[in-house]
Amino acid sequence: MDLALHQIPQQVVNGLVLGSMYALIALGYTMVYGILEMINFAHGDVYMAGAFLGWGVTLLLVRGGFPVVAAGLVILAMFLVAMLGAGLLGVTIERLAYRPLRGGHRLAPLISALGVSIFLENIVSAQFGARAQLVPTAHVLPGWQVSLGSATVSFVDGLVVVVALGLMVALDRFVRRTRYGTAMRATAQDREAAGFMGIRVNQVIAVTFLLGSALAGIAGILAGLLYTEVDFFMGYLAGLKAFTAAVLGRIGNIRGAVLGGLLLGMVEAVSTPFVNGAYVNVVSFLVLILVLLIRPSGLLGEQLPDKV
């Protein structure tokens, strides 16, 4: 037991990093669900695409493990390319695969999303091969670490948490404080009425996909830097966990997604010393079931009449 307790500080750090990743991806699920009541199963693959875009930047700017320009510039370029690329990918997916089906059967966009997911995975696998591609971080990221008691925090750990939390706060402000955010919330509440009030609903939905997908792209970059490899299948498990996090918090609610993501990551890491690794997922899904039994609409759920 002492052996287990001794690990807790480090596991809290691990959980915070992992939870930040989940939360960042969960935001995209929750934004799309909030506005369209649709689960965008291709979201995990947009995250994967963002990770590959970042890897592509390192192919150009890192030679033999060493960056050809300033290391900070490499990271900045990775973020910009992945944000823009993933954001545009999200908008394109919405325009081509979801919008034509809007107003049809409720299941149609869901099936379409699964199709997009399979399409993206296979096109990346066919283009770049099924093996993991390496992201050379050794000479791009600073090697220093900070010791907090018995826990060590590496630069990339800190980067993940700071970037993720910063973006989450910014998104929350955007949605709650700006005119555009008000339009988004109005569209989420009642798409038809929002349209009558002069809100350009299609544009609002496109912007929602742009933002959610850009966040997934950033999560992809962070994953590449953190795990130093990217592969075509990485979006599957990450997407599943992030979706769980969104439901845990309350799907459709931005703060709920953040809370759900952090909680899920923390449960996974902190339970590791106490159970066999094979049971980590059992524990985290047990938490999900318990939360949903006690609060059926998630941690931050309000008691609302069902919308459908």
Binding site: Q7, Q11, G15, Y227, F233, Y236, P273, G277, A278
Partner: peptide, 22 residues
Amino acid sequence: QRDSLTSGTKDANPIATKIKAF
């Protein structure tokens, strides 16, 4: 000591902490 890391997992930090503690 025996443990598992589910195939497909990318985040190996929690299990690394556990291994180190042993």
